[in-house]
């Protein structure tokens, strides 16, 4: 018997970070079905460091749409033959998971009831859920079809906004357990959440150390710098380091989309450290 867990949430809400963190800490044999890789992929370091993780990617539409549902069901049927205990499904940002259990029963009919659906966790981006959910009905369905609602990036909005958000989420899904987190960090989540165990008491703990990543940019001109900032702001909340801009060495500090550049005298290797990876 294999357990299936679903992770949903709009783009940038932190699904991949959550799954990366889950994989890092999970010691059983696991497969991940990723419905469309985003800007941030499943961390290849994690995959390479462990032999028991398998990744299956499904592109070109939501796995819950009738045009991709088959590929999802087929992937489950194929994975039923593998020696794995757990499957984590990372849905695409606009996935409407209302029919997940139907798809699993369809797959089960073809693989001797190999699967048991354990539950669903939805990452809710504190910054934009209230705004986006009025225009994108799939986001509401994600909330309605979840056991856990993880409000992520709650440090980026004021308390009033969080209160409104919690009220809205409770209204849409009174049964779900709501947990808040900050900086997209999941290391200190209660273990039943980060290990995706169903039904557990709520614990709201602050996150510990940030994840980091180092990049080495080529010499930049203004246009390339703008592009780089754009990319970095999508990947990290904070970044700092040294770059060469129009032939001159600069110290660079990025917080969100705010940029500070200062001249420096010493020679430093061009490198930027991304902090608080999203």
């Amino acid at each position: 018997m294999k357990n299936i867990y679903l992770v949903t949430g709009f783009l940038g809400a932190g699904k991949t970070s959550f799954v990366n963190n889950f994989l890092k800490n999970y010691n059983k044999k696991v497969a991940v079905i990723v419905n469309e890789f985003g800007e941030i992929n499943i961390d290849s370091k994690i995959i390479h460091s462990k032999e028991n993780i398998r990744i299956h990617e499904i592109n070109n539409g939501s796995i819950f749409c009738c045009c991709r549902m088959l590929e999802f069901a087929n992937a489950l049927v194929e994975m039923a033959k593998l020696d794995i205990e757990t499957i984590v499904v990372e849905a695409s940002g606009l996935a409407d998971p209302a029919n997940l259990e139907d798809i699993i029963s369809g797959a089960n009919a073809r693989c001797d009831n190999e699967y048991s659906f354990m539950g669903s966790l939805c990452l809710v981006d504190a910054r934009n859920y209230l705004k986006l959910s009025t225009a994108l009905p799939a986001l509401v369905s994600q909330v309605q079809n979840s056991n856990y609602l993880l409000i992520n990036k709650s440090d980026l909005v004021d308390e009033k906004q969080i209160v409104l958000l919690e009220k809205e989420l409770k209204e849409k899904n009174p049964k779900a357990q709501i947990i808040k987190t900050t900086y997209g960090r999941f290391d200190e989540l209660p273990h039943e959440i980060k290990e995706l165990k169903p039904s557990s008491p709520s614990l709201n703990t602050p996150m510990a150390r940030p994840d980091t990543k180092v990049i080495h940019p080529k010499p930049l001109n203004q246009k390339r710098l703008d592009r780089l900032i754009n990319k970095i702001s999508k990947k990290a909340y904070r970044a700092k380091g040294f770059v060469t801009l129009d032939g001159k060495k600069k110290y660079i500090d990025i917080v969100g989309d705010q940029l500070t550049l200062s001249d420096i005298d010493e020679a430093h290797r061009d490198e930027i450290v991304l902090l608080n990876i999203k």
Binding site: F10, L11, G38, G93, L94, N128, K131, L132, A135, L136
Partner: peptide, 9 residues
């Protein structure tokens, strides 16, 4: 890409 949905706002 998917930023189109944020651009709408």
């Amino acid at each position: 890409g998917n930023d189109i949905f944020m651009d709408m706002f």
